[in-house]
């Protein structure tokens, strides 16, 4: 790929990822994106589309509702700065409970149940084709004959 096409491709990737606003582009690549933009009509069209999307994204109006002072006061007065051992153990148990809640336990349990059923069925149903119950006696017989 020629250096010119490579730089066009990189400029396109950055505009598609970061949008049309120049301040969102990395400082080190801003100038290079601007020159690529000036040289390409395709990039200009893309830039316009991203501008429309940016305007739409800017309409989002999620605001913070918590009272920071109240939260800080409540936490710093209600909790010790170093959590007690039981709190740390509680947190560890909570994490383990979360693991179970995610269903990670299902695969090992399913494998164990399948294996146990297999062993049980094998023990009950399978009949050996040869009777080896006298094997020890047989071996003594062979040795005795020698």
């Amino acid at each position: 790929m020629s250096p010119e096409r490579e730089s066009q491709r990189r400029a396109r990737a950055l505009i598609e990822a970061l949008g049309a606003e120049q301040s969102a582009w990395p400082d080190a690549e801003r100038q290079f994106i601007l020159s690529a933009l000036a040289d390409s009509d395709v990039l200009k069209v893309l830039h316009k589309q991203e501008q429309t999307l940016d305007e739409w994204l800017n309409q989002s109006s999620v605001t913070a509702n918590l009272d920071a002072q109240a939260v800080a006061r409540q936490i710093s007065q209600s909790y010790p700065q170093k959590p007690a051992l039981e709190a740390r153990l509680g947190a560890a148990l909570e994490r383990i409970a979360d693991l179970f809640a995610f269903g990670l336990w299902r695969s090992p349990v399913a494998a164990s149940v399948t294996l146990s059923v297999g062993i049980a069925l094998g023990t009950m149903v399978y009949v050996p084709s040869e009777d080896w119950s006298n094997a020890e006696q047989y071996s003594f017989t062979v040795i005795g004959e020698e």
């Binding site: 999620v62 605001t63 913070a64 509702n65 918590l66 920071a68 002072q69 939260v71 800080a72 006061r73 936490i75 710093s76």
Partner: peptide, 14 residues
Amino acid sequence: YASLVARHLPAVEV
């Protein structure tokens, strides 16, 4: 701590 909470809580909540 209150200063740090005032500075960072809104961004984390949003």
